[in-house]
Simulated scan of single mutants.
Amino acid sequence: MALPIASVQLYSLAAEFSADMNGSLEKLAAIGLRTVEAFDFVRRPAEIRAALDQAGLTSPTGHAPLLTGELWTPDGSIPTAANEVVFEAAAEIGMKTVIEPMVPTERWLTEDGVKDIAERLNVASEKAKEFGLTVGYHNHAQEFLASFDGRTAYQRFLDLVDPAVEIELDLFWALAGGQDVVALVEEIGDRLVAIHVKDGVAPASNPFDPEAPTFSSDSLDQRHAGEGDVPTIEAMNAATGVKYAVIEYDRAPGDVFEDIADSYRFLIENGLAA
């Protein structure tokens, strides 16, 4: 298998990107990155495409809600556009895959809810093909709260969703959900197209549990790749078809560009990405 391409989810630097798009992308290019994963791109595809071109970067993957009603941005929450509008913007930027970043906890707690998520993504997947695109799903930890007949809601989702829907596994959030992330990578197999490279100290309990205290990303103890609880090297070596190793911080521990550079070096020096 060819090495995955190193990338970075622009949510990690959402505030910096919003304040200075061109400058932010140029800093990422200077680190050595040639690929990013776009965030909040639907309302400004032409602007983002121009900035990417100027920095010599591409965005083959991007996050945009396909099943939910709003998106958080540094400028406040904005309504989600219709899927067709999302796909038009993605195609203008030159993306290959649009990834649903998060479906709220309550929709993962019943088997009917999980079935509905899978069915809606299947419909979105068919529509995306008209634009030359695929769709994907990115997990947090709420997908691992409920179980049905011995299988987690996430596993049930994988059973139901069309294989054309690509999987992006966030290693930190899967660990926060109590999962053996290496075994989960092996179980997903060739359907796993992207991995979110994120590390830190795993919370003592699932932070998305409705019975837990209100969760805030400000409470996360996130660290550079290789410096926390996530077995990143083992998980990535267990992958069989991953195309993108996407660095992400929900809460960068220091200067976000230095933090991204540190995780990028970790990937390159350990032979995990190109």
Rank of each mutant, 00 (worst) to 15 (best):
M1N: 07
P4N: 09
A6W: 05
A6H: 12
A14D: 11
A14W: 01
A15K: 14
F17I: 13
A19C: 03
D20W: 09
N22A: 15
G23L: 10
L25Q: 12
E26R: 01
E26A: 03
A30T: 09
A30E: 12
I31A: 05
T35L: 01
A38V: 11
D40W: 13
F41H: 06
F41R: 03
F41A: 08
R43D: 04
P45M: 08
E47F: 04
E47Y: 04
E47I: 01
I48G: 00
A50S: 13
Q54Y: 00
G56I: 13
G56P: 10
L57P: 05
L57R: 11
T61L: 14
H63I: 04
P65Q: 07
P65A: 04
P65F: 01
T68Y: 12
E70C: 06
T73S: 10
D75E: 15
G76L: 07
S77T: 13
S77M: 12
T80G: 02
A82E: 15
V98E: 08
I99G: 07
V103A: 08
P104A: 03
P104E: 03
T110H: 08
E111N: 10
D112A: 15
K115G: 05
I117V: 13
I117C: 09
R120Q: 14
A124L: 11
S125N: 14
S125F: 02
F131W: 15
T134K: 14
G136I: 05
G136P: 14
H138W: 11
N139Y: 06
E143L: 09
F144G: 03
L145R: 08
A146Q: 12
A153K: 07
A153M: 10
D159A: 04
L160D: 07
L160N: 03
V161M: 05
V161E: 01
I167R: 08
F172I: 03
A174Q: 10
L175H: 10
A176N: 03
G189P: 00
G189R: 11
V193L: 15
A194P: 04
G200W: 03
V201D: 01
A202C: 09
A202F: 00
A202G: 01
D209G: 04
D209W: 05
P213K: 15
S217Q: 07
S217M: 11
S219G: 06
L220E: 06
L220G: 02
D221M: 11
G226T: 09
G226K: 07
G226W: 01
G226A: 07
G228F: 00
G228V: 09
G228E: 01
G228I: 10
D229Q: 03
V230Y: 02
T232K: 01
I233E: 02
A235N: 08
M236E: 00
A239P: 04
T240S: 15
G241F: 10
K243H: 08
A245E: 03
A245I: 08
V246I: 14
I247W: 02
E248V: 06
P253C: 07
P253M: 11
D255A: 06
V256C: 11
S263E: 12
F266N: 10
I268R: 15
E269P: 10
N270A: 09
G271L: 02
L272I: 13
L272H: 09
A273W: 07
A274C: 02
A274T: 14
